[in-house]
């Protein structure tokens, strides 16, 4: 067996195993902060799997966006909230049997569905954008070429979606507070020495 294949396989099982295990820990951990940390670990291993697939751009973006920004805010919120998660879990336990039942039914259905999976006869012909060979083009360039041409419409609308999310967050939370003294940089900078300091000659025993 080829050395590369062996290392590849070891890496795959390591990443996949840790990803699944930390995924389980996300919901099993008692402490919500630990949950988020395990979530981060899961993201990390997913990024590792991307690297194994040769999708290094996606892997890095996953780390930068999800781990570096989104999960930080998660952690921020979870650390700030003083939620009693054990009480919440007690409530959830009540619904566990029915939830588990529905989940089980869905699982069985899915197994049946995927067991009998067929593909459309002209499946291969329908694929719109086959992956270019990795050796010829870096996957950053390949993604960019697709995103800004073929999927420009979806890309632009996604931009609008993010804008709406931003407007929404501001509209729903921003409150103009009364009595806040703001720093006015322009007035500070434009203040001349003459406005601030007055040189007074004080004569002895006469005062100002």
């Amino acid at each position: 067996m080829d050395v590369g294949t062996v290392i590849h396989a070891i890496c795959f099982y390591a990443f996949a195993g840790v990803a699944v295990a930390s995924g389980v820990m996300v919901i099993a951990a008692r402490n919500p902060v630990h949950s988020v940390l395990f979530l981060i670990l899961a993201f990390f291993n997913a990024a590792g799997l991307f690297v194994l697939l040769g999708a290094e751009f996606l892997a890095m973006i996953l780390v930068i966006v999800y781990v570096g920004a989104v999960a930080v805010l998660f952690l921020f919120v979870v650390m700030m909230l003083d939620i009693n998660f054990t009480a919440l879990r007690q409530g959830a336990l009540q619904y566990l049997p029915i939830g588990a039942l529905i989940g089980l039914i869905l699982l069985v259905e899915l197994v049946l569905v995927f067991g009998a999976w067929t593909m459309a006869p002209d499946f291969a012909a329908s694929a719109v954008a086959p992956t270019p060979p990795i050796a010829q083009v870096t996957n950053t360039a390949a993604l960019g070429a697709l995103l800004y041409t073929r999927y420009i419409y979806a890309f632009q609308v996604s931009g609008l979606i993010l804008l709406v999310a931003m407007i929404g967050a501001i509209v729903l939370t921003l409150r103009g507070r009364e009595g806040v003294r703001r720093q006015k940089i322009s007035t500070q900078v434009s203040r001349a020495r003459a406005d601030a300091v007055e040189v007074v000659k004080v004569r002895p025993r006469q005062g100002v």
Partner: peptide
Amino acid sequence: GFAGTTAFDTLARD
């Protein structure tokens, strides 16, 4: 997963 495409026209043809 079934059709290999998300385009309505191709799906309609399939």
